[in-house]
Design a protein around this nucleic acid. Sequence first.
DNA 1: CGCGATATTGACCTGAGTCAATATACGTGG
DNA 2: CCACGTATATTGACTCAGGTCAATATCGCG
Lengths: 249, 249
Amino acid sequence: MPGRRKSPLKIANITSDMCAPESRLRLLAQVPFFSGLKAAELNEISQLFHDKGFEAEEIIYFEADPASQFYVIAAGKVKLTRHTQTGREVMLDLLNPGEYFGSLSPLPEEAYSETAQAHTSVCTLNMGKDVFRSILSTRPEMALKVLEITTQRLVSAQEMVRQLSAHSVEQRLAYILLKFGDKFGQKQGKGLLIQVPISREELAKLTGTTTESASRTLSQFQKDGLIQAGRQWVSITSLEGLKAILQEV
Amino acid sequence: MPGRRKSPLKIANITSDMCAPESRLRLLAQVPFFSGLKAAELNEISQLFHDKGFEAEEIIYFEADPASQFYVIAAGKVKLTRHTQTGREVMLDLLNPGEYFGSLSPLPEEAYSETAQAHTSVCTLNMGKDVFRSILSTRPEMALKVLEITTQRLVSAQEMVRQLSAHSVEQRLAYILLKFGDKFGQKQGKGLLIQVPISREELAKLTGTTTESASRTLSQFQKDGLIQAGRQWVSITSLEGLKAILQEV
DNA sequence: CGCGATATTGACCTGAGTCAATATACGTGG
DNA sequence: CCACGTATATTGACTCAGGTCAATATCGCG
């Protein structure tokens, strides 16, 4: 039995040359809002990015720092968080390669509205926000694509607001597990493994609860046969069971 | 003493001709993302809008309805809400003239992610989302402006997530009063009157709590001399006092 | 093998939700 | 213009989900 708790996560080995110029084109072509571009154009834009690697847990930028850069993830995962005066932390999102973060606005006085931190080791491609903006200003289709993605994120943040306002801790955890199953999931024998290291504490910060409550609730889910879980990992064994929890009154 | 509780709100008289063609140009010129346009261009775009009035409390569209229209508020206030399966309601935002809502996405299968309802009587200008998109696709500067506004709303939704995750009912109410003071406030003798009819129930739905808790908390604020409040209105008498509540541990 | 980080579990307590009774404002019609 | 009725708001009593504090267990690394 204890043997089954050993982590089934595959830890990708991310090295800082993964976002070096030679692999860039392939990576950028997969980013949603670059995907429509011709090779020549993509190549030209690719020249404008700088690459930069971060160790796991390293801070990319802090909330309230003057915002200057626009980032695209080449490899690894990035987490976005906000802090309260009282030191409490809320995790807003966990991003996959191909997703963007940082600043889009050209206003010089603007500050980052969240903290970005490497969740695993990460390679990013970045450019000044003014450079990105000038790219968009001559490519309306691309600007609309970025608008679409931003709108999508707005809807997702509003969904989180609804969750927090009206659902129990149990429901919010079920929801985040389903969401992450969708985003990071990987079929693994009987279950859907969430292929990203994630602690109870992080799940708590994602759902606006405490580490203890998250742990208690996951234990219950496991007893009920909905998930398998261990240190830093969760695998969903009953999608239906979790979905049923969302429907409860 | 009871006399002072009488509503100090000025109810604007909104008639359906307020968004008729002759007043449109003036209205549209005030909408942030139209503000940079030349008169001729604005006039051309103005032709593409249809006008439509709604009575207070009338539904403009429902969450999950197929999304087809893009709206700009000409006069009056619009509230955006989401519902849970259990019938509970969450209010996401309350919009002023000049703000937009509805759909921007061109995807035909998309649905509205929230319910839009006239809060006061309202005049709107609307057009098909595909028409709006084609306007944006030839005007990159305007698309960027819309992107900026959407990003702003995303930040604001994320702020709400933080509030709900980490702050008490008292703090959330103080926050929404300050926010609305900023958005709808009007100097009024000793205080800042929130110039929009708003019930305890609505304040509760905006902050993810219940009518009773909202009422209790506002009573306390009043005892502490932070606000004056009555049926459907609130006036802030101590901005500093409310801000201090946000800082509490 | 042992240590530090992570997770679990228990006991307790409190903020805020629920249910219920009452009060007050404001529009309506007599 | 006043009295009444209804929607809105207030207040009290009770309950409980989930936060807090604390002790212990377990994993996986060095």
